[in-house]
Structures are given as C-alpha cells and as structure tokens.
Amino acid sequence: MNSVSVQDADFDVGLETAALSAGRPEVGAVATFVGLVRADKLAAGGGGAVTAMTLEHYPGMTEKALEAIAAEACARWQLLGTRIIHRFGRLVPGDRIVFVGVAGSHRGDAFAACEFIMDYLKTRAPFWKKEDTPDGGRWVDAREADDAAAGRWES
C-alpha cells in the first residue's frame, strides 16, 4: 500500500512511522527519511544566510510523479508499504520538508527503497525552491549531484 500527500501543513514523524507497521505483524523493518530546511545554508554567489524558503509545485503532476516513484520502488524491491509526504509553501530553517517511509519484511529492501525514493524525488517531482535571503529572493539551482544520485539506480 502506497500513500502520497502534498500539503502545506507539517507532519508528525512518529505517527507516520508507526502507521507503516500498525496492525501488520508481517512488517519487520521500517526505514524513514526526514528532510529539513537547513539553517546554515548560504546562497550561492555570496549572498546572506537563508531566512526562509518557499516551495512551489505543479499541483496534479506532483502527486502523479510521487505515486510513480513509489510504484517504481515497489517493482524493484519487496516492500509492504510506502509513505511519501512533501510540503509546499513558506518554510523556515528547522522545518520539515519531506518524509519518506518504507515498510518491508527485512531492512535491506527498506533501506534501499527509502534512498531510491529520495533520489528519484529530487530529480522527478516538480518542486522548486526559492530562498529568502537578506539580499532578496533567489531560486535554487538544480544540483548535478542530484542527477548523479538518481542516475546510479539506472545500472
């Protein structure tokens, strides 16, 4: 069972993690990842520290893209469930941005699928970050390292 949410509200990591195995004794492993807005991140080009960021997305496509990534993970590994939550709107350092949780029988598949979902999400889900700095708003450029991280799952 896969579940995707794209929302402006925060999420409860404990509740989401527990829900992946609740009432399901066949689950032997739950791997989770939580992404946060970093406080120490500096704008490229020497700008000031990030005071907030705004996440824009493509309603409709975002949900489809995340569902496709979860389905791809289930095709590659033996999984018992996935949960993806991605926030949009204005966020400040320390805020949670993304949650990925994967339930499986064993840890190997759960760990791998969790990392795979994050890597694919970074390059395939239509989100864009705009950072607020003391010098004004600045769109975050895509990172080649993210393409490389997604690419390593192709072989």
């Binding site: 997305h57 489809k64 993304v98 999400l121 970074k122 395939r124 889900a125 239509p126």
Partner: peptide, 24 residues
Amino acid sequence: EMVGPEVAVADRDEIAFFPPVTGG
C-alpha cells in the same frame, strides 16, 4: 508527465515548461 522534445503535441494537451526541479 515529464517527456522529451521529440514527443508529439495533441489537441487539448496540457503542456508545462519549467526549470530543473529542486524538491526534497
């Protein structure tokens, strides 16, 4: 659905253009 430049465009399609994505 993200696609390449060779893909055909059809009547009533919803097309979107955007910079490389930066979620997560």
